[in-house]
Design a protein around this nucleic acid. Sequence first.
DNA 1: CAGATATACGTTATAGTATAACATAACACA
DNA 2: TGTGTTATGTTATACTATAACGTATATCTG
Lengths: 128, 128
Amino acid sequence: MGAALTPNETEVLALLRGANGPMTAYQLLGRMQRNGGAVAPPTVYRALKGLEEAGVVQRIETLRAWAVVTSPVPGVVAICDDCGAVRSVEAQGVFEGLHQRLAAEGFAEARQTIEVHGRCGDCTGGQT
Amino acid sequence: MGAALTPNETEVLALLRGANGPMTAYQLLGRMQRNGGAVAPPTVYRALKGLEEAGVVQRIETLRAWAVVTSPVPGVVAICDDCGAVRSVEAQGVFEGLHQRLAAEGFAEARQTIEVHGRCGDCTGGQT
DNA sequence: CAGATATACGTTATAGTATAACATAACACA
DNA sequence: TGTGTTATGTTATACTATAACGTATATCTG
Ligand SMILES: [Zn+2]
Ligand SMILES: [Zn+2]
Ligand SMILES: [Zn+2]
Ligand SMILES: [Zn+2]
């Protein structure tokens, strides 16, 4: 079974949930230090690793930052370069199509990272 | 027109072309130092930036490394976690499907990063 | 309870990645 | 010749991540 979260993991998750977007590991570190005194980088990286393995947090590769997983199924990460908003967009067909395409090449995929930069609806003048 | 490459860019590109896979910026730096004496990080990062803007080099985000662009059209980067091989696989339908999906959300995409980790055909016991 | 194992955590140091800021050189060309 | 532009050199620093080792705590076992 998926083990319960440790206290450090719980704290990091709460910080990420309270943020309105991804946070870098050192932003998390700073917050934890202001909360609880002496905290060092391994503490936050260990927590992030555990949360990632638990599937509740993911690294946004193109931002070198960390965010809560908002979708039960893996989504496309859409990042607005204007306002910084990050959304996970479900795109089952895209993932499946990619799976097929790679399988045709004999490639057995284990993990897909799909991140897209651009401008969100709000920032383009917004047709919603 | 796309400006000609500078000497530093040319050197970095030659190193990447001579490698059998992505290289980190500091691997490139080490090579350049062995070739030409005093070289500092900004030299290689500047060259990488120029090459990236020229479209001949790309950063592999999930590897924090740099590789030559092998496909005229953007491809899916397939990374074998076993042997380290990195291939760019054309998947026009995937990119287009993703484009459509995001457009439907009002998101105007500018840059897609699609990287997949797994095992290549050679490493799975290889049906080619 | 003594001892063994496992897990989480603390602590220090260091590795690895990337950029800021400012100085200099080289070139084009008015 | 002067002037702007591009490329480069140089120094320092910021940012991201992990290695290595020690300690605490819980749990099980005999
Ligand atoms: Zn936006
Ligand atoms: Zn799949
Ligand atoms: Zn392989
Ligand atoms: Zn598109």
